[in-house]
């Protein structure tokens, strides 16, 4: 469903993403792990068309995001790490705008809003302006907007930022449900618990390069060490840093 091939992106001297390649299957929940500044957000920005790669290719359900961005974007739902929304609009108006962007019929939009407002618990503030929302409320709105058109692919950057434990639980449940229903979920996070709890497969990135790809078991066998994901992640990152030094 998502195919990344030899992706490279530099900012001046800094190689933010260095020759990264991976494939993600339909219905898979994939977590992209890495420390701060590893290249996660840059990779995501290229996947959703906010940045263009220096070289390499991104195929979204076979469509090249660089050559056919509109077809590719039509099947993506994206949640950024900082959910800047249209502050002057009410939640309801915001969803109608997003629904229109994705060519949804008004009835379809209303039905979808009702469903996700109830699931994500923002029914009571739909008629308030977004500028008055807290960060957590905005984050929930961003999730609602990404789910609104029932996309085939969800790309989420740091999903738990600003969410209270109750909302975080709801989001985690919904993401797992989506993946089980055949939606491909690409999750970028540095929250190891979330990755360990939810993911079918994990990719670890550091200094722009992909360090490892697999699940907890394959990582354990690769580095021949027992422990949880946190231990493995730290070991991998530390090994790479030491080898670079």
């Amino acid at each position: 469903m998502i195919q990344i091939e030899n992706l490279c992106k530099s900012f001046g001297e800094l190689k933010a993403v260095d020759n990264v390649s991976f494939h993600i299957k339909k219905g898979e929940l994939f977590s992209f792990l890495g420390p701060n500044g590893a290249g996660k957000t840059t990779t995501i920005s290229m996947m959703v068309g906010l940045m263009s790669p220096d070289s390499g290719k991104i195929l979204i359900k076979g469509k090249d995001i660089a050559r056919d961005p509109i077809s590719a974007k039509r099947i993506i739902g994206y949640v950024p790490d900082q959910a800047y929304l249209y502050g002057k609009l009410t939640g309801l108006e915001f969803f109608h705008v997003i629904g229109n962007f994705f060519n949804m019929a008004p009835k379809e939009i209303t039905k979808s809003i009702r469903h996700y407002a109830q699931r994500l618990g923002f029914e009571s503030w739909l008629n308030d302006r977004i500028e008055g929302y807290s960060q957590g409320m905005r984050q929930r709105m961003a999730f609602g907007a990404a789910f609104l058109h029932d996309p085939e692919i969800l790309i989420i950057d740091e999903p738990m930022v600003g969410l209270d434990p109750g909302s975080a639980r709801i989001i985690k449940t919904m993401l797992r449900e989506k993946a089980d229903a055949g939606v491909t979920v690409f999750l970028s996070t540095h929250n190891l618990n979330v990755a360990e709890e939810l993911s079918d497969r994990i990719g670890i990135i550091n200094n722009g390069g992909l360090l490892a790809m697999g699940n907890l078991e394959t990582f354990k066998s690769e580095i021949k060490k027992e422990g949880n994901l946190e231990d493995i992640f730290l070991e991998l990152v530390q090994n790479q840093t030491e080898s670079q030094v």
Binding site: G49, L50, I70, Y78, Y84, F102, A145
Partner: peptide, 14 residues
């Protein structure tokens, strides 16, 4: 469009 520019840039229209 401000910091919400990501919304129109990731939406499916040119």
């Amino acid at each position: 469009e401000g910091k919400a520019i990501w919304i129109v840039r990731t939406a499916p229209f040119s």
